[in-house]
Amino acid sequence: MVKYYPLIPVLAIYLVMFLIGFYIEGMWQMVALLAFYCALGQSWNIFMGMTGYVDFGYVTFIALGTYGMALGISYTHQYEWLGIGIIFIGLILALFLASLSALLESFIALRLRGAYFAIACIGINEGLKHFIEGARIWGGSDGIIFYGALIQAFGRETSNHLTAFWADFAVFIIAALAAILNIYYMRSKIGYALTAVREDEDAAKVMGINTTKYKTIAFLTSGLLGAAVGAFAWGVKLAHVYPGDVFVIHYTIECIVVVLLGGAGTLLGPVVGGLVYGLSKYWLAVVLPGFQLLVFAPIIIIIIVVFPEGIIGFVKQKTKSTPLARYII
C-alpha cells in the first residue's frame, strides 16, 4: 500500500477544491475550471509524461468526446424510459469515437518518432475538423446544439443541475480516476516499459519490451480519459458543440503547459500545474482584462526556466531523503 501513498495528496487536493466550490458562494465556476485543467493535465500526462512523446493532436480526443456526448443525447433523448441512461450512452459513444481515433492514430502515428509524430497528430486533428465541416456530417460547421434535447429529456430544472453542477462533478471524478490509473501504471510493468521507451526506445526493444504495445496502452488510456473530460466539461456542461470550437490545437498547448509547469511524468505535477495555470489565467483575466496573455506568457516562461523539471520535479529533488518523499512523485 505504501506504493500508493502519493495518491493521498492528489486526492486530498481534489477534495479540498470540491469542498471550497460546493460550500463557498460563487466559487464553483473557478473550481470547475481548475478541475478541468487538472483532469486534462493528468490524462495527458499518462501518455506524454511517461513516454516523452508530445501529442499535439490530443485535443482530437477531447473534441470527439464532446461529439460522442452530443450525438448520444440528441439521438436518444426522446426515449423517456432511458432516463439518465442517455448520458451514459453519450459517454460510451464518446469513448468509442476516441478509441477509434486512438487506434487509427497509434496505427499511423506511433510508428513515427519525435517531430513526425507531433505533425501527424496535428494533421489528423485538422483533417477531422475539415471532414466534419466539408462532408456536413454531425451538423457540419453548424455543429450540434442539444440543450433542447436535455430539457425535453429531463425538464428544465434537472437540465440546469446537470449542466451547472453534475458535469463539473464528473470532471472531478475523471481527474481522480486519471490519477489512480496514472500511479497504477507507474507502479506496474507498464510504467517500467514506458520509462524505457522514453529513455531509449531501441535499447528497450532489445531488452524484450514490445514498445508499440505499451505505447498504445498509454495512448489509449490517455485518449479515453481526455474524451471523458470532453464529454462532460464541454458536452454536458455547454450542451452544444461546433467543430471550429473543439478541434483547436490551443487546448493541446494548454495541456502541455499544465504538465510542464507541474512536472512531466510526476503524479502530483499535473494537479499543481493545473492549479497554477488555471488560477493565474482566471486571476489575470479579472485584474488585467485584455492584457492577460501579455503577462501570462512571461510568467509561464519564468516558471519553466526556474523549474526545468516542473514545480513537483523541483520539490521531489528537495524532499528526496525526507519522510515526505513517499508522498510525492
Binding site: 517500467y192 520509462t195 522514453r198 529513455e199 531509449d200 531501441d202 528497450a204
Partner: peptide
C-alpha cells in the same frame, strides 16, 4: 556505448 535508461 552503454545505453542505460538514464532517468530510472
Amino acid at each position: 556505448i552503454p545505453r542505460p535508461f538514464n532517468s530510472a
